[in-house]
């Protein structure tokens, strides 16, 4: 799930200041904490109040979309409102905001959230925690299932560094675990220190170069196979 944090109300208000009619779109997709119809409604009320303090009237409507990052779902949901509003404020992560700008291109969509990280809900340790950075070169098979990219402040492939003290990381004032000590403990537990000892060469960062894309709808034709058969 994508973990988001709402922007400061003043920052959101500055973005929508030029408009008098806005659509506020929640997202029922994976983003956490929830940013659905209720959150969209509360944001509308706050923005209306803020506008009032400046002597302005703000008309707003709150809706929610199943998944703002899915072009077909987002387009069909938002289409009926586009002629009546001057701008959209999205409560989705950055993916949703970009998608809304793409599919509803008559007006601009503004972000109400900062997208923090792809994370898990881990109530026993922390509310939300980043376990994967979608780096494009998964190392979990050699690190005992602990990610040194998301879990290590320095993204080390061959840790730990000298900044670990009693298994804790120098970043954050020795309150968070050192991923490499966690990796060591996991691999020791399963008698796989051979994996810990192994040197991992420098990463190929082309897999993480922006903009990333994977083509899903490749075409297929049997023409070439037919030609080969004919040659035979």
């Amino acid at each position: 799930m994508i973990i988001t944090q709402q922007k400061d109300i003043n920052e959101i208000y500055e973005m929508i200041k030029p408009y008098s009619k806005i659509l506020i779109a929640g997202c029922d997709g994976c983003n956490q904490p929830p940013r659905s119809i209720n959150e969209a409604k509360v944001l509308g009320q706050l923005l209306e109040l803020k506008a009032k303090t400046e002597g302005k009237a703000l008309i707003w409507k709150a809706i929610t979309i199943l998944r703002q990052c899915d072009d077909r779902i987002a387009a069909t949901t938002v289409r009926p409102f586009l002629d009546d509003y001057e701008a959209i404020v999205s409560l989705a992560c950055g993916l949703g905001v970009v998608m809304m700008n793409k599919i509803a291109d008559k007006i601009l969509t503004y972000p109400a959230q900062n997208s923090m990280f792809g994370g898990v809900q881990n109530a026993s340790e922390n509310d939300f925690i980043q376990y994967c950075e979608t780096c494009g070169d998964c190392l979990l098979g050699v690190t005992g299932g602990v990610c040194p990219i998301a879990g290590c402040a320095k993204h080390l492939n061959n840790g730990p560094c000298g900044g670990t003290v009693d298994g804790l990381c120098e970043v954050g004032g020795y309150t968070r675990p050192c991923a490499w000590i966690e990796i060591y403990k996991r691999l020791k537990k399963f008698d796989r220190l051979d994996l810990f000892t192994k040197y991992r060469p420098a990463r190929d960062y082309r897999s993480a170069t922006s903009p990333s894309f994977i083509v899903i709808n490749k075409t297929y034709t049997n023409e070439e196979e037919k030609k080969k058969e004919e040659k035979k």
């Binding site: 402040a153 320095k154 993204h155 080390l156 492939n157 061959n158 840790g159 560094c161 040197y199 991992r200 060469p201 420098a202 990463r203 960062y205």
Partner: peptide
Amino acid sequence: RPVYDIDSTQFCEL
């Protein structure tokens, strides 16, 4: 923003 493109062991290899 810190860099850490390669780590210290990889720098040894370099």
